[in-house]
């Protein structure tokens, strides 16, 4: 159990994705069973890995490091994927979701593995617990918000796919039956409507926590690239959110493309910023408080 590594579940998901690709040629029950088995094996290894990490760092995976919360996000996506694939044999959700999961897990390798000591800066136990709780709320809101973004992104891809099929009058192929445009548009709308407020709340809690920690003499700069980048993404998302709420004559396809572009931009930027600020890459200028603060922690303790 202790030897479970990222490679174990990454390999399982690669196999599951390979089997998902067979939908494009011939979808057989045996492929589906093998795909579910590979996905499930990956999920078990994934869960064990996260539990091991939690026990090593002494913190829940969401709080411990960027590496861990990205894996938690991938874990949520896999649970969602396995559930849908088990319920509906013809829904090709894996074809769209698994590549994103693989990118998340691959990116998790390049980001920081170090426990985030911001949440354990203070020696006052009561205050430390309060900071931890707020940090937990901040990260949970962000992770669930990003999970919603992932979902909206996949739903929009499905919408565009289904729209293309209908416009080109193609028959439904075995193993490639997508939900109706109406359902996809509705689910997409809900995914956006839920995820943007979650991200906003997460951002708000993060800013509040940052201000509080500044007061506690912790060196946190709101001008660092990660925070500025996140702020800009948030502004772009809010713009999209307001447009979605106020839109009058936008077609479903238009909304789907807008979602793909805006949420795709969010995912790329978010993951890109985390990778560039991780300690596994030699870009010193990108090192931000997420990593630097941990190294300066002992000096800051009074």
């Amino acid at each position: 159990m202790a030897n479970v590594s990222v490679v174990c579940f990454l390999a399982s998901y690669v196999v599951a994705f390979g089997l998902e690709l067979t939908r494009l040629f011939r979808w057989m029950s045996i492929s589906r069973a093998a795909m579910l088995l590979a996905g499930l094996a990956g999920l078990v290894a994934h869960t064990i890995y996260l539990l091991n990490r939690a026990s090593q760092t002494g913190m829940p995976p969401l709080l411990s490091s960027t590496h861990d919360w990205m894996l938690v996000l991938a874990w949520l996506a896999i649970v969602f994927y396995l559930f849908l694939s088990a319920v509906d044999r013809d829904l090709p959700v894996g074809l769209l979701l698994l590549p994103l999961v693989l990118v998340l897990i691959g990116s998790a390798y390049w980001v920081s593995y170090l426990p985030n000591s911001v949440v354990s800066l203070n020696e006052d136990v009561v205050q430390e617990r309060a900071i931890q709780n707020w940090a937990m709320i901040h990260v949970s809101l962000l992770v669930f918000g990003i999970a919603g973004v992932l979902l909206a992104f996949v739903l929009s891809l499905m919408y565009v796919w289904q729209h293309y099929r209908l416009k080109h009058k193609r028959t439904i192929r075995d193993g490639l039956a997508l939900p109706s445009l109406e359902k996809l548009a509705r689910l997409n709308w809900w995914a956006v409507i839920v995820s943007v407020p979650l991200l906003t709340l997460g951002m708000g809690v993060g800013v509040g926590l940052g201000l509080y920690l500044q007061k506690e003499a912790v060196e946190i700069s709101f001008a660092d690239p990660v925070i500025v980048g996140h702020g800009m993404i948030w502004l772009a998302l809010m713009g999209f959110f307001i447009w979605l709420c106020l839109k009058r004559r936008s077609t479903g396809k238009h909304v789907a493309w807008m979602t793909i572009w805006s949420f795709g931009f969010l995912l790329v930027t978010l993951i890109g910023l985390q990778v560039l600020s991780g300690e596994n890459l030699p870009f010193e200028s990108w090192k931000t408080w997420h990593t630097e603060v941990q190294r300066t922690v002992p000096a800051m303790r009074v």
């Binding site: 289904q162 099929r165 209908l166 439904i172 109706s180 445009l181 509705r186």
Partner: peptide, 22 residues
């Protein structure tokens, strides 16, 4: 019995139901 084979059933089953949920 898989796949629809009359014009009306294809129209409703393969295309109509892929556009509308209900």
């Amino acid at each position: 019995a898989e796949g629809r084979v009359s014009i009306a059933s294809v129209a409703v089953g393969e295309f109509g139901k892929s556009i509308f949920d209900r």
